[in-house]
Design a protein around this nucleic acid. Structure first.
Lengths: 208, 208
DNA sequence: ACAAGTGATGTCAGTGACTGACATGAAGCT
DNA sequence: AGCTTCATGTCAGTCACTGACATCACTTGT
């Protein structure tokens, strides 16, 4: 409380993340060892692995909050008495439970994650990730996990598994496409504007 | 030393792949070392890494042939200036203005990669992959690479980058969804039948 | 105040994936 | 037979990652 020794300064997690970002930016991901990151943060290598499961994970924090920002856009669930346990593949969405309508709402909600202030930081992070295949793999895994979460949310609202999976994956595709446009050097539109345009484009593409 | 016969047998790559799939199936991916795989194939660990860039890659061969099977489904490219207008192209999709028509053709072509004989092997492989996150990451990377290739093929035929990316990603989503159904234990339909049904479902979902 | 925790960190000794450098030996060519 | 080629073996090393145990600032119960 009074005096903090070197061993117990808090915020080791944040110091490690900042040190890693800096070193990756200057030396590259492969050119940086975990020992270097730990030393730059004033801890040992062992402590790094107590905070992050592996070297890549240091760039992928707050996955839970990330997914929550999407789920927050879901309109309140209607609680009808009988869930239709149908596997009827007539291809018609049940009632008003059009999964793509829910996905559109979810995407609008997620746009709040990317205000203008965050764009420079997102551009820098994306530059690091696109420079390394291993980091791209991890990002794809996070996007896949998001799709799984969204699929679960849609099936919980009565969508059949295949439709839920297709809608969720399409939603993630729209998000990723919008994000890649958003971090483009000269792009000026907001994330929400871009994403809605991408979603509209998807509708014109797939619409029969 | 007794390494006489094994050295020049040939087919080391295939023996390594089969040994790996077998050991992964019985001991799990993490429970199997590269040294074990190599020993089961009659080579040394160093030779394994001469054939496969890393331990995961042994389950992801033929990526080039894989992508070529998709591209083979692209109808011959239109050359407006050079083609005689009397050429009967009623059955050919119009280039550029409808990427999803090209994607549908590409998907039908790719279905040839999965004849019935391959289903047992695919099921064994998929079981191993779904049991291990690192392998899922690698699979996602391969699917992403496929989407990039398809995006390039679509833009080369006049599609704008965003539409090309959306169509390519949607195509890969349909493929992946169809594949996961195809390897389901009791599933009987052919890959082509399943994939066409999934594509139809996507159209009803996004259409309007 | 003091002993007994508690939790974050350090220390150490591994295992296993992966790499570079170099040696070896079977097969092909002349 | 001699020379070359090339797949493979051998060896030493780096680094990501883990389990087991020690340490120490700080907290809590008495």
């Amino acid at each position: 409380m009074m005096r903090i020794m070197a061993r117990w300064q808090g915020g080791a997690r944040e110091r490690l993340r900042e040190a890693a970002l800096g070193l990756f930016g200057t030396q590259g991901y492969d050119g940086t060892t975990v020992a270097e990151i730990a030393a730059a943060a004033g801890v040992t290598e062992r402590t790094f692995f107590r905070y992050y499961a592996d070297k890549r994970e240091v760039l992928f924090v707050d996955q839970t909050a990330f997914e929550q920002a999407f789920l927050a856009g879901l309109p309140p669930e209607r609680d009808d008495a009988g869930l239709p346990p149908d596997d009827d593949d007539a291809g018609l969405p049940a009632d008003g439970d059009d999964p793509m309508r829910l996905i559109a709402a979810v995407l609008d909600s997620a746009a709040g994650l990317f205000p203008e202030e965050r764009r420079p930081w997102s551009r820098a992070r994306q530059k690091v990730i696109t420079a390394n295949v291993a980091l791209q793999e991890r990002e794809l895994l996070k996007m896949s996990a998001l799709a799984v979460t969204l699929t679960g949310a849609l099936t919980a609202r009565g969508a059949d598994p295949t439709s839920a999976a297709l809608a969720a994956e399409s939603g993630v595709t729209v998000f990723r496409t919008a994000f890649s446009v958003w971090v483009t050097p000269d792009e000026q539109r907001t994330f929400l504007e871009i994403q809605q345009a991408v979603l509209a484009r998807l509708h014109t593409l797939i619409g029969q």
